[in-house]
């Protein structure tokens, strides 16, 4: 097997002597198959026994070895070092974002666990489920597939670490927490209902930008962003009147009326008095001829769009 000398640039921090984190470069001989975790073990055994990182199963199951590898949160045991070198010329290893560093690549995941707990990650069973313990409560396959996929989460923290909304908004509970909420909402044996849905707006349901970073970085393909969309649907159906829900409603109305997005309506009806903060901008946009018109002509064949609305269950409109 071919081997090569690879550069590992690792962000180190020892709270006992370092004022701030700094990079140390290690040269490691790697083969094609070695994972980043293998290489870190090699550095620890052969070059610097003080290099600190978490690891346990080495098989992508336990979720312990998440770290930032060339800028993205990944499991070190599932990431081939040679592929990273091929793409980035080196392997840059840093601790996960959105969590404070304890030492080297080890972070304090307390905030992550607090957020998971905010979503009440346990089954709230219906009485019909608990009343007869001699009977199994089987799900039909289609239902089982949804909650099973969400239950695949190994709590590695990768989605939380790479969540851009969480960087700027500490009230946003994060992708893993919301995926866990949906795992129970989608489970017909759970009767949490309103108790699960109504706190979501306060947990930042509408703060997700759907940037799909959580979908990309999840090592178990849980797709938290898709779960967040499902939760938003449920929140809207339960009468959510927050700005986020209004934004969705205006979209729905706008496409029904004209087939297209009415940017002016979207802006005014979502923000309402909030538009006053933009008066200066609105004036400048107007002068530049960039302000969108409130009056829109419907697309040709708008009747087809409206019929599809009715056929898709939007009959009340």
């Amino acid at each position: 097997m071919e081997t090569q000398e690879a550069v590992f640039r690792i962000l180190r921090f020892n709270p006992e002597k370092d004022e701030k984190p700094q990079y140390t470069v290690f040269h490691v001989s790697i083969d094609e198959q070695m994972t980043v975790l293998d290489a870190l073990e090699k550095i620890k055994h052969e070059q610097d026994p003080t290099l600190t990182f978490r690891r346990s199963c080495r098989s992508g199951i336990c979720g312990s070895c998440t770290m930032k590898i060339n800028g993205l949160a990944k499991l070190a045991c599932k990431t081939r070092a040679s592929l990273e070198v091929a793409k980035h010329e080196e392997v840059l290893v840093e601790p996960m974002e959105n969590m404070p560093t304890i030492r080297d690549l080890v972070v304090d995941m307390g905030e992550f666990w607090n957020e998971i707990n905010r979503g009440k990650p346990w089954l709230m069973p219906d009485e019909t489920v608990t009343s007869d313990i001699t009977r199994e409560n089987l799900l039909i396959t289609a239902q089982q597939q949804v909650s099973s996929k969400l239950a695949d989460c190994i709590m590695c923290g990768a989605c939380f670490a790479d969540c851009i909304s969480r960087v700027f908004d500490k009230n946003f509970t994060g992708p893993a927490s919301l995926a866990k909420v949906y795992r129970f909402v989608a489970d017909p044996r759970d009767k949490g209902g309103d108790e699960r849905i109504s706190p979501l707006v306060g947990m930042g349901l509408w703060s997700c930008t759907h940037c799909y970073m959580c979908w990309s970085q999840c090592p178990r393909d849980v797709r938290p962003v898709a779960a967040i969309s499902e939760l938003r649907t449920q929140s809207v159906a339960k009468g959510d009147s927050s700005q986020g829900a209004r934004h969705v409603k205006v979209f729905m109305d706008s496409i029904y009326k004209t087939g297209a997005l009415n940017e002016a309506a979207l802006y005014l009806e979502t923000l309402r008095l909030g538009v006053l903060k933009d008066l200066d901008l609105i004036v400048r946009l107007g002068l530049k001829g960039k302000a969108p018109s409130f009056f829109k002509k419907a697309i040709p064949q708008i009747d087809e769009v409206r019929l599809i609305y009715r056929l898709a269950g939007e009959g009340k409109r």
Binding site: H210, S229, R232, T233, V236, H247, V248, K249, F251, M252, S254, I255, G259, A260, L261, I299, P300, Q301, E304, V305, I308, Y309, L311, A312, G313, E314
Partner: peptide
């Protein structure tokens, strides 16, 4: 495609994902 409708921008599906799929399929 002058008679095509808005793609929904990842927002419309948060109310009715089936509707959004049909409109895009159209």
């Amino acid at each position: 495609l002058t008679a095509a409708s808005c793609c929904g921008a990842g927002v419309q599906n948060e109310d009715n994902s089936f509707l959004c799929a049909v409109l895009n399929a159209r």
